[in-house]
Computed example of a mutant assay.
Amino acid sequence: MLKNVIIGQYVPGRSFVHSLDPRSKLITIFLFMIFIFISRDPFVLSSAVLLTAAAFLTAGIPFKFFWKGIRIILIIVVLTFTLHLFMTQEGMVLLDLGWITIYSGGLIEGGLIALRLFLLIILATMLTLTTTPVDLTDGMERLMKPLKRVKVPTHELALMMSIALRFIPTLLEETQKIVKAQTARGASFSQGSLWKRVNALIPVLIPLFVSSFKRAEDLAIAMEARGYAGGEGRTKFRQLSWRTRDTMIVSFLLLFGVFSIITRIS
């Protein structure tokens, strides 16, 4: 199942979402995240669902490929919903079994948080699928450029985030290889008590950490051999281009945000 995780991968394409400037994508997701967490209005949240669906359709990503990739991440959404369902004790009692009580407030809060988290997972996954790691790094660096005035190493921060995203599929592939090797040696990851399953993961985690540190060291040596010395004075072969479509997308999200704030106040 780990091989299906798609966060950090890039799918080449010529769709409308692919052609957007990475800065506009990052700004759009950031604004979208703020606005859907501000508003509790059903119409605003329904509009957010439609906007996410429209973005997915225009991205041209195969649904089966996308669904296989986010299924494992949906465990977080289900867990979040369950925690709010059982821990929020507000509103009318919907179910009382003595040892467990479910309230209407827990159902509503759990549904809202799960929906918001689900939409953000979809958009964040689409960001990496439709944006190359290089463009994503450049976009983050440009957006953080004002922080250079207070001596924040924006280039290094953007590079670290980009490398982290890039190595997610690699680490998952490495984990799958280790799991298969341990299974061939007789290890079991799906049988026995919870404690036994946790102990079975130790032979996986140790070689995974060793492999990760070795890979990081090899990457650092390769960067030093190529003369990398930070972002100061570096030029770029590919220049980002902010177009009219990017302005329209960000402006539309701002209008959506204003409407969300108005519904929150009223």
Rank of each mutant, 00 (worst) to 15 (best):
K151Y: 12
T128P: 07
P133D: 06
L129P: 04
E141S: 12
A124S: 15
P133C: 05
T132I: 09
T128W: 10
D138Q: 15
L143I: 13
K148R: 15
T128C: 08
V152I: 15
K151C: 03
T154K: 00
T125I: 04
K145S: 15
V134E: 15
T130L: 00
K148N: 11
L129E: 07
M126F: 05
V152E: 00
M144F: 14
D135L: 11
M140P: 07
T131P: 11
L127A: 10
P146H: 06
M144I: 08
T137P: 01
M126A: 03
V150P: 01
P133S: 04
T137E: 14
K145Y: 12
G139N: 10
T132A: 12
P133I: 09
P153V: 07
V134H: 13
E141V: 07
V152T: 05
V152Q: 00
L129Y: 10
T154V: 13
K145N: 13
D135F: 08
K151P: 00
T125H: 06
V134C: 05
V150C: 02
T125N: 12
V152S: 00
V150R: 04
A124R: 01
T130H: 10
M140S: 10
M126T: 07
L143M: 11
V150D: 01
M140R: 09
H155L: 04
M126N: 02
T128F: 11
T125P: 02
P146G: 06
E141A: 12
M144V: 01
P153Q: 10
M140N: 11
G139F: 05
V150Y: 07
T128M: 08
T131I: 11
V150Q: 02
K148S: 00
V134M: 14
D138I: 05
L147W: 00
T137I: 13
L129Q: 03
K151L: 09
T130I: 02
T130F: 06
P153W: 07
L129N: 01
E141W: 03
G139P: 09
T130A: 04
T137K: 15
V134Q: 15
D138Y: 13
M144C: 11
P146A: 06
L129H: 06
L147H: 00
L127K: 07
P133L: 09
T130V: 07
V134N: 13
V134D: 14
G139K: 02
L143Q: 04
D138H: 14
A124P: 00
D135C: 02
T154F: 03
E141Y: 11
V152H: 00
T132H: 12
T130N: 10
D135T: 01
R142A: 15
R142Q: 14
V150L: 13
M144Y: 01
L127N: 06
G139T: 03
T154P: 01
D138V: 04
E141F: 07
K145L: 09
P146D: 05
K145I: 00
L143P: 04
P153I: 10
H155R: 08
T125F: 03
P146R: 03
T125L: 07
E141K: 06
T137A: 14
P153S: 12
M126K: 03
T125E: 09
T132D: 02
